[in-house]
Simulated assay, not measured.
Amino acid sequence: MDLFGSSTFKTLERGLAGAQVRQNAISQNIANVDTPNYKAKQVSFKHTLNDAMNHSALKANRTNDHHYEFSRAKNSVAIETNRSTMYNHNGNNVDIDLEMAELAKNQIYYNALIDRLNGRFTSLQTVIRGGN
């Protein structure tokens, strides 16, 4: 029996990993707010979703012909650099207000994932204790 290999744990793990990548990019942007010619970085997961939606016939190895066809999507993250704008006279394009808002949004997302993960562990703990 694989307690931690369930799809819920794997999904939460991928979500936490994505939040960490986004946190790193936002932190770099905030740390370089006054660095001349620094260009803000942005984490994008949207292209992965679009790729998955554009492929109508997703294929995978099936152990039985009666199983649904599906695909194991790659969890690719794109870190993009925004070179199209310039907010400061020194060539820097970090918008500190936007970055602080994104930081707060990412923190809320991360906390929600942690709360859900804690709920899963609490459920396992209840089962192990025999319902007490």
Rank of each mutant, 00 (worst) to 15 (best):
G5L: 01
S6N: 14
S6D: 14
L12K: 13
G15F: 04
A17N: 13
A19W: 02
Q23K: 08
N24M: 13
I26T: 10
N29T: 10
N37L: 06
Q42T: 09
V43G: 06
S44A: 03
F45P: 05
F45I: 06
F45M: 14
F45S: 09
K46G: 03
N50H: 03
D51G: 10
D51K: 12
A52P: 00
H55S: 12
S56Y: 05
A57S: 06
A60L: 01
F70H: 06
S71M: 13
N75G: 14
N75H: 10
I79R: 07
I79H: 06
T81P: 04
T81W: 03
Y87P: 04
Y87C: 07
H89N: 13
H89S: 12
G91Q: 02
N92I: 07
N93Q: 01
N93L: 06
D95N: 14
I96R: 05
I96V: 10
D97E: 09
E99T: 08
M100A: 03
A101R: 13
E102L: 15
A104I: 04
Q107Y: 01
Y109M: 10
Y110S: 12
I114E: 07
I114G: 06
R116A: 05
R120M: 10
F121A: 01
F121W: 10
F121G: 04
F121C: 08
T122C: 07
T122K: 15
T122L: 06
S123A: 11
L124E: 05
L124A: 06
T126M: 12
R129V: 00
